[in-house]
């Protein structure tokens, strides 16, 4: 849930990157971190296993600039993708303002993508959110791989309601900022219409 602070004139919003294990969520945040001006970012925190698999979450605070005299701050989180970390994923979705679903384009991961979206929908519902109503963006990552599924096939399976979506190669940064920007835009547009929920 966004947090409006009239005292410091800041608005804080939370964006969660969701998706199956190894789809590239952490890579998205790392790229954003590496490409962001040091003045605008805080430290990136990764609670990971020794083999660099996300254990609890990655966290990256970003300051994007001012709107109407309010500093806009975005807190980006990733969830651990592996199926057995479901309890942790639920916790990270608490208070979310916008979601990015990172899909793994490899054909053999399509089943995992679909499962993860269903899991996202169910976990959001438990928190009182409806995936069809919150700001939501889909990213088709790993487009560079030879075994990537055709784009229209992925759109049909993973984005039937036609939310904003982007092709990406997160390790090279392609599509990473486009995805973030669309999500931030969705979140801010939401604030405008809600005027406090």
């Amino acid at each position: 849930m966004s947090f409006i602070n009239y005292s410091s004139r800041e608005i804080n919003c939370k964006i969660v990157y969701y998706g199956p294990g190894l789809c590239g969520k952490t890579t998205n945040l790392q790229y954003i971190y590496n490409k962001t001006n040091p003045d605008l970012k805080g430290k990136m925190i990764s609670l990971a296993t020794e083999t660099e698999r996300t254990l609890f979450f990655d966290f990256l605070p970003l300051a994007l600039g001012e709107i109407r005299g309010f500093k806009t701050r975005f807190h980006l989180y990733t969830v651990p993708g592996q199926v057995f970390y479901d309890a942790s994923r639920k916790l990270i979705l608490k208070g979310v303002d916008g979601v990015v679903f990172v899909a793994d384009s490899q054909i053999e991961r399509m089943e995992a993508n679909i499962e993860s979206i269903e899991n996202l929908r169910a976990n959001l519902q438990e928190q009182g959110f409806d995936l069809d109503k919150i700001p939501y963006v889909v990213q088709y990552n790993k487009r560079d791989l030879p075994n990537a599924a055709p784009l229209d096939e992925m759109k049909r399976l993973l984005n039937p309601s036609n939310v904003p979506d982007f092709e990406a190669c997160a390790h090279e940064g392609k599509g990473v900022f486009e995805t973030l920007k669309a999500t931030a835009k969705g979140v801010l547009t939401d604030l405008k219409s809600l005027g406090g929920r």
């Binding site: 109407r68 801010l188 809600l194």
Partner: peptide, 20 residues
């Protein structure tokens, strides 16, 4: 329905955030 400071923001405001 008190006015949120964001009630009036425009697409341009949002685009400007990413301009650099």
């Amino acid at each position: 329905g008190a006015d949120s400071p964001f009630a009036e923001i425009t697409d341009d405001d949002i685009d400007n955030l990413f301009s650099d």
